[in-house]
Design a protein around this nucleic acid. Sequence first.
DNA 1: ATATCATATAATTATATGCTTATATACTTT
DNA 2: AAAGTATATAAGCATATAATTATATGATAT
Lengths: 108, 108
Amino acid sequence: MDEIAEAAEKLKLLGDKTRLTILCLLKDREWCVCELVDVLSISQPGISQHMRKLKSHGIVNESRRGQWVYYSLRIQDKPYIQAVLDYMPGTAGTLSLLNKKEPGQCCN
Amino acid sequence: MDEIAEAAEKLKLLGDKTRLTILCLLKDREWCVCELVDVLSISQPGISQHMRKLKSHGIVNESRRGQWVYYSLRIQDKPYIQAVLDYMPGTAGTLSLLNKKEPGQCCN
DNA sequence: ATATCATATAATTATATGCTTATATACTTT
DNA sequence: AAAGTATATAAGCATATAATTATATGATAT
């Protein structure tokens, strides 16, 4: 697959409101699935499926700790994704767009 | 629509191989529809529909001159789109990915 | 006016996408 | 081992998307 096709595939992943929101939340810290469920208006399997796509394209890291699964950004080697996220709100700004507070203690 | 939703909508436009290729071709000069048809493996109505989407989101300018319609980038005010395209090939590199030469004199 | 060329729109179709509910897997605690 | 909690997978459905073909619009030239 050529350079353009590969970039298009990644950009398509960013081109979904829910996924882009997740990536914005991940800008400042890792999040576990239960926290994302708390904050986004979508079911747990919905979150899970989005994370699988992001993971399969190498955009997030997965880390199982105890019964929880934490996701974090993995975009050091993906400059144009970094560039996009640089122009997007971080955790706090995204939460306020969602009219949500930092999720409580669902995982610890 | 909030900031994230709006960005997602624009990124979705970039997340299609054909459209992203068109934007890469437009990096260095304007192109008319007939040239794009020459170079991309897609029908003329296909091109037309992609250009309409790009135009309706303000990503390209349209300029009718004679019987031809020329499109050019309009991304000065869209920094993250600029950033993405900065990492993508320009006209020449894109043509070589497509195994095509500069289109001949279809419009003049 | 008519013919020709360039582009746009409409209608259709096949496929992809995002979501939901139901169920399975994995880990932890008792 | 059994129950409880967190996450993942599967199946199904509704909508969106990108392509095609057919047709309409618009501009130019004879």
